[in-house]
Design a binder for these strands. Structure first.
Lengths: 220, 220
DNA sequence: AATTACATGTGAATTGCTTCACAAGAAATA
DNA sequence: TATTTCTTGTGAAGCAATTCACATGTAATT
């Protein structure tokens, strides 16, 4: 094991999130016809400091040209490589309720290389139905179908009451990354990455901010 | 202006987010029949340290009993008060596409006191249609209808291309808190709170984590 | 009533993240 | 070619968040 490999483990979550933001902004800059961009300009668009932008990038290499800035297309490519989105990820959505079926049509996922290719539900009325060209499978066959379809990530949009059972199934199918929308703390083995999307949390932050005149505004 | 008021401005965003998590877990503990809970148990459920839990709470007062822990119902109430969710917030959803209409049926919002009471769209086919008992209004009348309905927060689920125009309208209507789902950096006046919900970001984090064996697992 | 066990609340220490400040280098200009 | 201008990349400093460690206090037990 090299020192370089260990280095990557020290990257903070905030840095990764900011890389996502840079990537999106670089895509926009590209569309707007910019060839190069400075850390100053990038920072302005993200409401960050130029130093923050440069420091974030410096963890992964030196991609800029002194006096000139960064080549938009090149930096976009580098960040895609760092984030692992310079490829297609095969994703399954488990739970085809309101949120689940909305996500199937969410174009931003596709744009970033996240391709939803499998859908699962336990409701007989939903099984066999079609969403954006994908047929909903019975959750009973989850393990086999996930393996056969080479699914690498799962988006979980089932009721909180059954979420843990579904996670257990998904883990058994060998999936190592789960994005959970159920408002509950799930257990996964240490080699599985679990992220929680909690939409109420953001409204609660807004509620707190209004009530307390909280200062760090317009963030995230 | 007292010193106490200024103190609140020093609370970190992470602390607020953790309060949201504590609130949800306390609701669950209540349902499970627990009368009291220790910082140790709370921490275990959130995958945090007990010190973190106690420190977070200490910013707002001392709610526990030494040797015993916290009264579940009481602490839940205190946190609701701190977050400002011991009341009903009147919310409008602007943009009744896939995500927007999914959120109208999202029960977790209602459970936390976030009541969606107005819907807006610019599509003639959607205007006048009914979602969970709410009729979709024409976005043309946004300012007047938002004022008349005493809307305090807006959830923005419109395409990125029109998001800034919609925000401008919403701000003109006097709304001070916006939760934006469009993947774009919006401008708002300094007295308006804007939060961005970026679902791709979480998938990108998972992608990075898998590719780099990133260590801080199972967080958030 | 005294003792033991337990858990809070909080300064202090530590760790981690952000910003500063500047040397180094590249491009544009004269 | 020399000079000026601009911007990166990065150690060091500064700031913020987390964890430690323990004094303080309550409840349960004997």
């Amino acid at each position: 094991m090299t020192t370089d490999t260990n280095l990557k483990k020290r990257i903070s979550e905030s840095t990764i999130h900011r890389l996502s933001m840079y990537f999106r902004t670089l895509s926009l800059l590209e569309k707007e016809g910019f060839d190069t961009v400075s850390s100053k300009e990038l920072a302005k668009r993200e409401k960050l400091t130029p130093a923050q932008v440069r420091k974030d990038l410096s963890f992964f290499g030196s991609f800029g040209t002194r006096g000139l800035g960064y080549d938009v297309g090149e930096l976009k490519g580098k960040i895609a490589e760092i984030l692992g989105i310079n490829r297609v990820w095969r994703i399954a959505v488990v739970g085809i309720g309101n949120i689940g079926s909305a996500l199937v049509s969410y174009k931003e996922f596709t744009r970033q290389g996240f391709h939803i290719v499998k859908l699962f539900d336990n409701d007989q009325r939903k099984i066999g139905s079609n969403h954006k060209g994908i047929t909903v499978s019975d959750i009973q066959n989850l393990e086999k179908e996930i393996r056969d379809a080479n699914i690498e990530m799962v988006i979980l949009t089932v009721p909180a009451t059954v979420a843990q059972y579904m996670v257990d199934d998904v883990v058994r199918a060998g999936v190592k990354a789960i994005l959970n929308f159920a408002p509950i703390n799930l257990k996964v083995p240490p080699d599985v990455y679990l992220r929680n999307e909690n939409m109420s949390m953001e409204l609660e932050y807004l509620s707190f901010a209004i009530m307390n005149n909280h200062t760090p505004k317009n963030v995230r």
